[in-house]
Design a protein around this nucleic acid. Structure first.
Lengths: 256, 256
DNA sequence: CGCGATTTGTGCACGTCTTCACAAGCGCCT
DNA sequence: AGGCGCTTGTGAAGACGTGCACAAATCGCG
C-alpha cells in the first residue's frame, strides 16, 4: 500500500481529516509508544525499528507494527520509523495538539498529589480549575492554583472550554460531581473514586482504582503461593518464603 | 453441575485447595464485585440477584454470572447469591484472607497520598514500610508511619514477609527500586512511575499511569469532536462547544 | 403435591485481540 | 545497475472475551 490516505495534517486544525477508528486496545497503547518515542528522541535517535520501539514500550514487535499500521503510519521498510514524524502522527491522533483543559474536583490527599503532578502538563494537559465542596478548602493555593467551590463550576466552564473532568472525591460525592460535570458539558471523566458512575450516553468514563490493582496482584500472589506449595510435602509451614524465585512457567512479566 | 469441587475452605489456610485458574478479565472484575457486595451488605441485603449485582458493579449480568461460575460459586436458582458466602468466596480467591504487607517506595507527592489512602487498609492490605532514597525525607512521619531509607529494605524484608511493592518514585529511579524489591523476594509490583520495568519471570507488574488515562480520554474527545464537526457545514469555528451533548451512538459509557 | 415464576449456569456464536510468518519494499554496497 | 540484507505491513490462524438464549433448578403458593 503505497497509496496513503494522508491521515491528518497535524500542523493546523480546521479541516477535519476523518480520524480512523482505532481498536480500543491500540488506543490504550499509543500513549506508551509516545512516551517511549520521546525518550528515544532525547537520546538523539532519528529513526527506530519496530523491534527497538517495541522493546522500549514493553510490547511485542508484531503488535506494535499492527498498531501503527492502523493509523496508516509512515515507516520505511529496511529502515524503521522516523521519530519526529511518528511522534507528530500519534500526538495528532490522540488529540494532543490542542492543549486540553482539565477540571480537578476533590482536593484531598489524592487531589493534592494530582494537582502537583507534572505528568499532566508534560503532555498536552492543563489544569484549568481546582474544585472542592468543602468550604474550608476553598481559597487554598496548590501549585499556583486556587481552589474554588464546586458551585462555581458553571461559571468556570463558561470561561474555559473544559475537556476533561477528574474526580478525586470520596465515593459518596462522586456521582453528584459527575452529574455536575456532565451538566456543564464535560464528556470525558477520569474517576478515582471507588464507585460506579452512571452517565448519559456519549460521555466517556475511565476509572482508576488503586485498591483494585492491589487486589489483582494479591490474587496472583495467592496463586503463585498455592502453586509453589503444591509440589512440596503438603502441610509445611508458610512462614518465610523469599530467597530465590522458584516459579517457572507462571505468568508473563508485564501486565496490561 | 451439582457436584461442586469445594473450591476452598476460607476459614483456615494450610490445605492448599487448588485455586481454579480464572481468566484474567474475570480476575480484574472480581474486586469490583467485591466492593459492590460490601455496599449491598451494608444496606441490609441478605441475597442479591445477578441482575442486581451486575447493576451495582456496572457490568452485564451474563458476564457476571459467567465470572462467578468460574470460581464454582454457590448461587441458588430462583433466589440469587448469598451475600456473605459470595463475599467469603471472592475474598478467599483473591487472597485477601491473609493481610498482605505492602512496601511503598517513594514518598513524594503521590507517595504521600498513597500512604494516607484508606482504601488499602479497608481491603486486606497493610502498609508495612515507607521507603525513600532521599535522606531529607527519612525520618518523616506520615499517617503514623516513619519513612525509612531504601537501603533498609533488606532488613525490613527479613522482618516482615513483604508481599507487594508499590513504586511511586520518579521514572529514573523506578527500575533500580524494582531490582531491589525483586532482590528481597517481592514478586508483585504496582508501578506508578511512567516507565516500563523489566523484571525476571515470575514477577508480576501492574502499571498505573495517570497521564496515559488522560491521553486515552483525549483521543475519544478528539474523535467525538471530529464526528460532530463532520455533519456540520465544514469550516465552522471550534470555539465554545457545550450546551447539550449531541453525540448518539458513540461509545459505551463505562471504560475498563 | 404440582405448577408457575424466577434465577442460575452454560453451550454456542460472534467479535476482538494477539501472534505468526512471509511477501513487498527500501537502502546500501559492490 | 544489480543483488543482498533488513524492516515494514498484512493475511491468516488461533486465543480470548462477550453476549444471547435457554435448559436446569429452586422456591412459594394454591
Amino acid at each position: 500500500m503505497s497509496q496513503h490516505r494522508h491521515p491528518g495534517a497535524p500542523g493546523r486544525a480546521g479541516a477535519v481529516p476523518a480520524l480512523p477508528d482505532l481498536p480500543e486496545a491500540t488506543v490504550a497503547r499509543l500513549p506508551e509508544y509516545l512516551r517511549a518515542l520521546h525518550n528515544l528522541a532525547e537520546s538523539g535517535h532519528e529513526t527506530v525499528s519496530s523491534e527497538g520501539l517495541a522493546g522500549a514500550a514493553g510490547v511485542n514487535s508484531a503488535k506494535l507494527r499492527k498498531d501503527l499500521s492502523h493509523l496508516g503510519s509512515y515507516g520505511t521498510r529496511g529502515v524503521g520509523y522516523d521519530l519526529a514524524l511518528l511522534i507528530e502522527q500519534i500526538e495528532y491522533v490522540l488529540g494532543l495538539t490542542q492543549r486540553r483543559a482539565v477540571a480537578l474536583v476533590g482536593v484531598g490527599n489524592l487531589g493534592h498529589a494530582l494537582a502537583g503532578y507534572d505528568g499532566f502538563a508534560s503532555r498536552g494537559f492543563r489544569i484549568a480549575a481546582l474544585l472542592d465542596a468543602d468550604a474550608a478548602r476553598v481559597g487554598e493555593e496548590i501549585n499556583g492554583l486556587v481552589v474554588h467551590h464546586i458551585d462555581e463550576l458553571p461559571r468556570i466552564a463558561a470561561e474555559e472550554a473544559l475537556a476533561i473532568g477528574v474526580i478525586a472525591t470520596p465515593a459518596a460525592a462522586a456521582q453528584g460531581v459527575a452529574d455536575q460535570l456532565v451538566a456543564v458539558g464535560v464528556t470525558s471523566i477520569l474517576n478515582f473514586a471507588p464507585c460506579v458512575l452512571s452517565v448519559p450516553e456519549g460521555v466517556d468514563v475511565r476509572k482508576v482504582d488503586l485498591a483494585i490493582e492491589l487486589q489483582i496482584l494479591s490474587f496472583h500472589e495467592h496463586r503463585k503461593a498455592s502453586l509453589t506449595a503444591l509440589p512440596a510435602t503438603g502441610g509445611s509451614a508458610l512462614t518465610a518464603l523469599p530467597g530465590g524465585l522458584a516459579v517457572t512457567d507462571t505468568q508473563e512479566a508485564i501486565g496490561t
